[in-house]
Design a protein around this nucleic acid. Structure first.
Ligand code: MN
Ligand code: MN
Ligand code: ZN
Ligand code: ZN
Lengths: 160, 160
DNA sequence: ATTGAAAATGAGAATGAGTCTCACTATAGT
DNA sequence: ACTATAGTGAGACTCATTCTCATTTTCAAT
């Protein structure tokens, strides 16, 4: 089943290969796509949800912590990785929206788990319009929005 | 000019007095509304936007740092204060939505400044509906959402 | 193939926001 | 006043993240 199967809205602009994307974006910034960076991108592409640095370490052991953080930052500056701050102990990392497509999150207030969700295009454009109107009033130049739903994941809800 | 001046939609459920609200909520939890806590609420109520702990210290000097954090957490547990994690060095604090009314934020990616905005009710209910639909698919129990617009504030945009 | 300049790495030190400890003080009810 | 409970403040502490710097890789140019 192809991601573009008939009848499905093409909401994501995901490029076919995150590695190709990462390589070219790094190169454009005079940086190299080293094996360590490739492992990071591979780990993020393989995870179905945003992951913390400890998560990454367990998926791809052997990466020095300082290097992992440094490379996540480099990938973030190139627009390959996106960092989520949720208020928990660790930051979460995922592939950027240019690779994963625009989406939002469900965040469990009990266990901190994060899941990706997509909204319909109608709602998205209505959000963009309303935000743009509010921004205009104060001369704020819009770049992108984040929208997260907080609640209880099914397993935490079961335990209550 | 009253907040309920004629013709203005009453979108906020803000209670008239944040202090009364804080006192009763704390009391309900067996806690006291001390002068230090009152100063915190006063500082948050006086600020037109979310503030950091250093901001609070300059508004209300003399509060011990450990006590300020401890009390912000206590007020947060009572639903009087809301903590925003933006990824900057410090967390931001504001009065909770039960006091300020439901709203969203403009966040400057350059200087970190935050401003409050409100969206029209149509958009809000559309958002709630779409999020609820997405949550239902995974058995996630919705509690509340956060929606922030990232971009450049007018002064940071001028310097570019 | 060799070389050299620039970029990346890894181990550990450093940073710093936020939390914890604990001895002391304030509060409220009796 | 007495007592039990809650709050305070100074500073120690934690630990995620960033910084340092000596060493190693990469890559393009010879
Ligand atoms: Mn959206
Ligand atoms: Mn909203
Ligand atoms: Zn959960
Ligand atoms: Zn700004």
């Amino acid at each position: 089943m192809d991601a573009r199967s008939e009848g499905e809205a093409v909401t994501s602009e995901a490029s076919s290969d995150p590695h190709a994307e990462a390589a070219s974006r790094l190169q454009a910034a005079g940086q190299r796509y080293t094996s360590g960076r490739r492992e990071l991108v591979e780990a993020l592409a393989g995870a179905a949800r945003p992951v913390t640095l400890p998560d990454i370490e367990s998926i791809a052991p052997g990466l020095a912590r300082s290097t992992a953080y440094r490379n996540l930052e480099a990938l973030e500056r190139c627009g390959v990785v996106h960092r989520l701050e949720t208020g928990g102990d660790h930051a979460y990392f995922e592939l950027a929206e240019s690779l994963l497509g625009h989406h939002h999150h469900l965040i469990c207030v009990t266990c901190g788990a994060i899941a990706d969700i997509e909204l319909d295009g109608e709602t998205e454009s209505r959000i963009d319009d309303s935000l743009a109107a509010a921004a205009r009033e104060s001369g704020f130049v819009p770049l992108h929005h984040s929208l997260d739903l907080y609640g209880r994941c099914s397993s935490c809800d079961a335990a209550a």
